[in-house]
């Protein structure tokens, strides 16, 4: 078989994953009613191949935080449906990568509770607060595991987002150059 270090999760020992996911599981099961309350009802998400609706909602919240609809580039994560793109991407990954990334989404969902002891979950944070949590606790935090998760997710999001035609006019990229009409770069004034 070909290698499977796609997102580097193989570095995590089984014991480490177990501890983390068990922690998350205990938070969910042991905290029972309270955690269930925090998580809220299972969101509706049609047409998913790999992700559960809750996992999809967590990834969608992350995508929305990383690429909000507001700001200087009109297209946002929701418009480009980055969470569905992630679901489709996962469908072509080997089972162990699917499993690892889904565990990572559970940790992300419960991140505010597990790592900041706040009585809320990631999808329930406002996009600005979700971004702050993701940057401080995951991308820049002291935990190698959380940095790895952050790196894997943000690489996927950035690649798909900036490969989108809807984004190119705003960043001055005229698109692929091979073909009959090679467009000149977009003038700065119109970006």
């Amino acid at each position: 078989m070909s290698g499977s270090d796609r997102f580097g999760f193989s570095v995590l020992s089984r014991r480490r994953w177990l501890r983390l996911v068990l922690g998350a599981g205990v938070a969910v099961a042991g905290g029972a009613g309270m955690v269930r309350g925090l998580r809220g009802p299972v969101p509706a998400s049609p047409d998913l191949w790999v992700l559960s609706p809750r996992e999809h909602a967590t990834f969608a919240a992350l995508a929305r935080a990383v690429f909000p609809t507001a700001g200087s580039i009109p297209a946002g994560a929701d418009q480009l449906d980055l969470a569905h793109a992630f679901d489709r991407f996962l469908a072509d990954e080997p089972p162990w990568n699917q499993a690892d990334l889904r565990k990572a989404l559970l940790l992300l969902e419960l991140g505010p509770l597990l790592f900041e002891h706040r009585l809320t979950t990631f999808p329930r944070l406002a996009p600005e607060a979700a971004l702050r949590h993701f940057e401080d606790v995951w991308a820049r935090g002291p935990s190698l595991l959380r940095r790895q998760v952050a790196l894997a997710f943000r690489k996927f999001l950035a690649l798909v987002y900036f490969d989108s035609e809807a984004v190119w006019p705003s960043i001055g990229y005229p698109g692929p150059s091979f073909g009959a009409t090679v467009s000149p770069p977009v003038p700065e004034a119109s970006r």
């Binding site: 690429f67 700001g71 200087s72 971004l131 993701f134 900036f162 490969d163 190119w168």
Partner: peptide, 22 residues
């Protein structure tokens, strides 16, 4: 743009704004 976007360090609105310098 996709591969360059994976390298830049910024996220959120700031990340989008910085990429306008592409």
């Amino acid at each position: 743009p996709g591969i360059v976007g994976t390298i830049l360090p910024w996220l959120g609105e700031v990340g989008k704004e910085r990429m306008r310098d592409y």
